[in-house]
């Protein structure tokens, strides 16, 4: 077939620090089909289908509005609480689902690991991108809701891509680290659901960052979802809880986690087929 540009592979015992990006590119069609499988399989044989993508954040919005908005009367900075929480729930839902899905993806696709060689990083990557499709749908609902409540974003809207990017890489980075650990240590699978619960309370989803003393904001931003959520609120609701320092801290920690995730994954990949 392509004898002229014959590929030469060298197999040895050394583990790589980084995935082979050229090879990942060669498998880009596989990535596409894995994402397609992820989405189709998830919503097959369900009545509402892809509608589930918006039901989860909408449902949480209702619960939060009743409990935190009406009963606990949490300060929502002058914005109707339902909008205040939904703006946070849209990125949060993506983050928690994508992280959980990519963390579980490796152990859920063992036959792809033990019976064939593919660039295995595509498995958590496709799980994360699959959830991103859900995010786009609920993001559109968010826009509709905002327009309904007469919140019109100004030119700051361009920054939304930065926050979405931050949201994506931190979900992928955490999912990658947890997924790699979950292959060896089953404990991760049991700890994940309540870990995510804790993570939510550590992020300003139900409350506002200004409830935290200002001097701790930099430390608070070590949780990248703080910056993402407050970034969304800043753009759509004009709530000023975000600073450049917080953005820098969150980006640094996310990139650091991504590097750690990729290296940890690549170092561990060689024993994937042996430990399961």
């Amino acid at each position: 077939m392509n004898n002229n540009k014959q590929s030469i592979k060298i197999i040895n015992s050394k583990s790589e620090y980084f995935p082979n990006f050229k090879e990942i590119f060669e498998y880009k069609d596989l990535l596409y089909f894995l994402i397609l499988k992820d989405i189709k399989a998830r919503y097959a044989q369900s009545v509402i289908g892809i509608g589930w993508a918006i039901i989860q954040p909408l449902f949480f919005m209702l619960v939060f509005t009743v409990i935190f908005g009406k009963l606990a009367k949490i300060d929502s900075e002058g914005v109707p609480y339902q909008i205040f929480s939904f703006t946070a729930l849209v990125p949060w839902t993506f983050f928690s689902n994508a992280m959980a899905d990519s963390a579980n993806s490796l152990s859920a696709n063992l036959n792809l690991i033990t019976n064939i060689y593919i660039p295995r990083i595509l498995i958590p990557l496709s799980a994360t991108i699959g959830k991103f499709i859900d995010f786009i749908i609920s993001f559109l609902i968010l826009i509709v809701l905002l327009l309904f409540y007469s919140y019109f974003p100004d030119q700051k809207i361009i920054l939304i891509f930065m926050y979405i990017f931050l949201m994506f890489i931190s979900a992928f980075a955490f999912g990658l680290i947890l997924g790699t650990m979950a292959i060896q240590y089953r404990d991760i699978r049991y700890a994940l659901p309540f870990g995510i619960q804790l993570f939510m309370y550590a992020s300003p989803v139900a409350y506002s960052t200004n409830m935290i003393p200002e001097k701790y904001h930099i430390i608070y931003a070590l949780n990248p979802m703080v910056t993402v959520v407050e970034g969304f609120r800043n753009i759509f609701l004009n709530i000023e809880n975000i600073t450049v320092e917080m953005i820098l801290v969150s980006f640094s920690i996310s990139f650091l986690c991504l590097m750690i995730g990729i290296i940890y994954f690549s170092k561990t990949e060689r024993i994937f087929a042996d430990v399961v």
Binding site: I11, N12, R270
Partner: peptide, 9 residues
């Protein structure tokens, strides 16, 4: 390439 060798190339 499903699993890596312990030694050798």
């Amino acid at each position: 390439r499903i699993t890596k060798p312990t030694k050798g190339t």
